[in-house]
Design a protein around this nucleic acid. Structure first.
Length: 557
RNA sequence: UGCGGAAUUGUGUAAGGGUAGCACUAGUGACUCUGACUCACUCUGUUCGGGUUCGAAUCCUGAUUCCGCAGCCA
C-alpha cells in the first residue's frame, strides 16, 4: 500500500537545508522560560521541537531560558521536566541558557571590539523616546560613538558592579532608522543585581533574549531553532548577531503559529487569577489547560500527541475546536480503558421475584473493543441501583430505557420488566420495582427475543461508594479572554464546569482502583481516579463524556 | 501613513498549472448486551477585482481583511 505523506512547511525547509548541504543533521531545542506551568499550547511546541529531531534522527535538548533572574523560579524547572517526560519525549541534555553566559559575554566583547556594540547611558525612558515609533525613525543615542576602548572599559566596569542597576546598558549598533524596531540598536545586556538560580551572584549583568538565544542555539549546535510567530520580526536580529559575532555554522530560526484552543485560557496572568481567587483547585485542577491539570483530568499523553499531530503546523494563526481534543481522548480511551458500571445518580431497583438472599456473579467483558483484556465479575442481587434517568413512568418518544411493562436488559445479567415505583411525599421516585426473567440469565434468552434497551446497574450490597466529579469546559464562551460584553473574564466561567455527584455507587471491582487509573463508565464517559482518593474513599474525575445522541434527541423535544 | 506575517467548508489542515482531499463537527440511516464503538451516506469551501492560460486555490497584478511589533520580558 502506498501512502502519501504531506509535509508541513518546517519539514520542507529542513529537507531543503539538508539537500543543499546547509546542515548534515538536525538538532533542535525546547526552550521554556522557567516561570510557569506548561499548558496545552506548549504541548504543540514540544511535539514540534522534539518531534522534528526524532523524525530526522537528530537530537533535541531541553534548554531553560533563564536570562532574566528576576522573573524565573526553580520551582518550575521540575514540573516542566515532569510534564515533558509524561508527554513521552526524551531530551538529549538538560541545559540552561545560563550555561552559555561565558560564551555570550565573549560574544559581546567581540561585538564591542568590532565597533558593533556600545555602552549607552540613556535611561529606559530615554531609550524608548530615542527609539522612535512604528512610523517614525529613531535617533542615535548620544553615546553611540564612544570609542572601542571606552566601551570595553565601561562594559568591564558594568560587569564588575561599578554601576547601579539600570544605569547603563550594552546595545548593538545597528540602525536607528530601520523600519524593524528590533534593529534600532537593541539592548543586549542590562545590569541586574539579582540572585540567579544557577549562577548565583557571579553576574550582575545579564544578556537579553535576543542576544542570548541565537548564541545559545549556535554554541549548542542547534541547526533549526523553532519558535512561535511573534519572533518573526526578531529573525533579522537573530541572523545579525550570528553573522557579526562570526559563527561559522549559524542556527536557523523558523517560526510557526501557536495553538489556540477555544473555550480555554492559557494566559499566565488569567490562569493565576483563577488559582489565586480559588476559582479552581490549583494549577492542576482538572479544568485547567495546564498539562498537570489535563493529566489529573485523565488525558493521556498519547491523546495529546495525537491532537498535536491532527492540528498540523502552519504559519496562520488559528483557533482549534475543543471537540478535536475530545475526539482524540475518546479514541484513545475507547480502545484502552476497561469498562465498568457506575451509577452516578442512584435510585433503588428492587427485583421483587428474585430471592432475598441470593447473589449471582456474572462474567462481563472488560473491553469489547479488545477481547484480550479479559473479563471481570459483576454481582447481581435482589437490591440494585440504577441511574435515576433510566426509569420513567411514561416513556417519551424514542425512549429506550425502563418503563412500567417494558422488558429491558440489565447489562450482563437479566431482562427485567418494571412493575411500578415508590414515591415520597413530594412525588419524587424513591424506588423502582421490577420482575426479572429467569430465562434471560447472562443477558440473553433462548428464544432470542429482543429488548429495546440495555442499562447499567450495581448491586446495592456490593457496590462501592464514590464521589464522581463531572467536569465540563471551564468557560461557556469560545474566546474567554475576549472581555467585550463583560467586565471581567471570570464572568464567562461555566458554572457547571464541575458538578459533584457525592453519592455515586460503583461496581465492586473498582474498590482497589488507584489514582490515575482510567475507566469507561458504561454509557457515560471516561473517568479516572483522582489523587483525592483515599482508602475507602473513591473519587473519580470525568475526563470526557461519551458522545450522546440521546441527549440531542431529548433536547429537540 | 512603517515593518513583518497570514487568508481554502462551522473548525483545523492538504492539493506546489490538470478530479478541491482528509480529520473534527453537524445531519441521515444501518448495526448494537454501552443511545458508545463501527459502517454507509449527506451538507457546507479557494477573501475580493482584474490578467496570463486549453485549464488557476496554485502564476502575475491590484485591493481588502486579520494577526504581530515601539520591555533594560521571553
Amino acid at each position: 500500500m502506498e501512502e502519501v505523506y504531506s509535509r508541513n512547511f518546517i519539514q520542507e525547509a529542513i529537507d531543503k537545508d539538508l539537500e543543499q548541504g546547509h546542515y548534515d543533521h538536525v538538532q533542535t531545542r525546547f526552550p521554556p522560560e522557567p516561570n510557569g506551568y506548561l499548558h496545552i499550547g506548549h504541548a504543540k511546541a514540544i511535539c514540534i521541537d522534539f518531534g522534528m529531531a526524532q523524525q530526522y534522527n537528530g537530537e533535541c535538548n531541553l534548554r531553560f531560558d533563564d536570562t532574566n533572574p528576576t522573573k524565573e523560579d526553580v520551582e518550575y524547572v521540575d514540573s516542566i521536566m515532569e510534564d515533558i517526560k509524561w508527554l513521552g519525549f526524551k531530551w538529549n541534555k538538560v541545559l540552561y541558557a545560563s550555561d552559555y553566559f561565558d560564551d555570550i559575554y565573549e560574544a559581546a566583547l567581540t561585538l564591542i571590539k568590532k565597533g558593533k556594540a556600545f555602552v549607552c547611558d540613556l535611561s529606559a525612558d530615554e531609550i524608548r523616546e530615542y527609539r522612535g515609533t512604528l512610523t517614525e525613525p529613531g535617533k542615535n543615542s548620544p553615546y553611540r560613538d564612544r570609542s572601542i576602548e571606552e566601551n570595553l572599559d565601561l562594559f568591564r566596569r558594568m560587569t564588575e558592579g561599578e554601576f547601579p542597576d539600570g544605569a547603563k546598558v550594552l546595545r548593538a549598533k545597528i540602525d536607528m532608522t530601520s523600519p524593524n524596531l528590533n534593529m534600532r540598536d537593541p539592548v543586549i545586556y542590562r545590569i541586574l543585581r539579582a540572585h540567579h538560580h544557577r549562577t548565583g551572584d557571579k553576574w550582575c549583568v545579564y544578556p537579553m533574549y535576543d542576544f542570548a538565544h541565537p548564541i545559545s542555539d549556535t554554541v549548542e549546535g542547534v541547526t533549526h531553532s523553532l519558535c512561535s510567530l511573534e519572533f518573526e520580526d526578531h529573525r533579522p536580529l537573530y541572523d545579525w548577531v550570528l553573522r557579526e559575532v562570526g559563527y561559522e555554522n549559524p542556527s536557523r530560526q523558523i517560526e510557526f503559529a501557536r495553538m489556540n484552543l477555544n473555550y480555554t485560557l492559557t494566559s499566565k496572568r488569567r490562569c493565576l487569577r483563577l488559582v489565586r481567587d480559588g476559582i479552581v483547585d490549583g494549577w492542576d485542577d482538572p479544568r485547567m489547560s495546564t498539562l498537570c491539570g489535563m493529566r489529573r483530568r485523565g488525558y493521556t499523553p498519547e491523546a495529546i500527541r495525537d491532537f498535536c499531530e491532527r492540528i498540523g503546523v502552519a504559519k496562520a494563526n488559528s483557533v482549534i475546536d475543543f471537540a478535536i481534543l475530545e475526539a482524540c481522548i475518546r479514541e484513545d480511551l475507547n480502545k484502552r480503558a476497561p469498562r465498568a458500571m457506575a451509577v452516578l445518580d442512584p435510585i433503588k431497583l428492587i427485583v421483587d421475584n428474585y430471592p432475598e438472599d441470593k447473589v449471582e456473579t456474572f462474567e462481563v467483558e472488560v473491553n469489547p473493543e479488545d477481547p484480550s483484556m479479559g473479563t471481570r465479575q459483576v454481582e447481581f442481587s435482589k437490591y440494585l441501583y440504577i441511574e435515576r434517568e433510566d426509569f420513567r413512568e411514561e416513556a417519551p418518544n424514542k425512549y429506550k430505557r425502563m418503563v412500567p411493562g417494558r422488558e429491558i436488559r440489565l447489562k450482563g445479567a437479566y431482562y427485567v420488566t418494571a412493575t411500578g415505583c415508590e414515591k415520597d411525599a413530594d412525588g419524587n421516585i424513591t424506588a423502582v420495582h421490577c420482575d426479572y426473567a429467569p430465562d434471560s440469565r447472562g443477558g440473553d434468552t433462548a428464544d432470542k427475543r429482543k429488548v429495546k434497551g440495555t442499562i447499567h446497574f450495581v448491586s446495592a450490597a456490593h457496590a462501592a461508594d464514590a464521589e464522581v466529579r463531572l467536569y465540563d469546559r471551564l468557560f461557556n464562551v469560545p474566546n474567554p479572554s475576549d472581555e467585550t460584553g463583560v467586565s471581567d473574564f471570570t464572568e464567562n466561567i461555566n458554572p457547571e464546569s464541575e458538578i459533584v455527584m457525592a453519592n455515586a455507587k460503583v461496581e465492586s471491582g473498582l474498590r482497589n482502583a488507584k489514582p490515575g487509573d482510567k475507566f469507561q463508565f458504561m454509557r457515560q464517559g471516561y473517568f479516572c481516579v483522582d489523587k483525592d482518593s483515599a482508602d475507602g474513599k473513591l473519587v473519580f474525575n470525568r475526563t470526557v463524556g461519551l458522545k450522546d445522541s440521546w441527549s440531542k434527541i431529548n433536547k429537540q423535544k
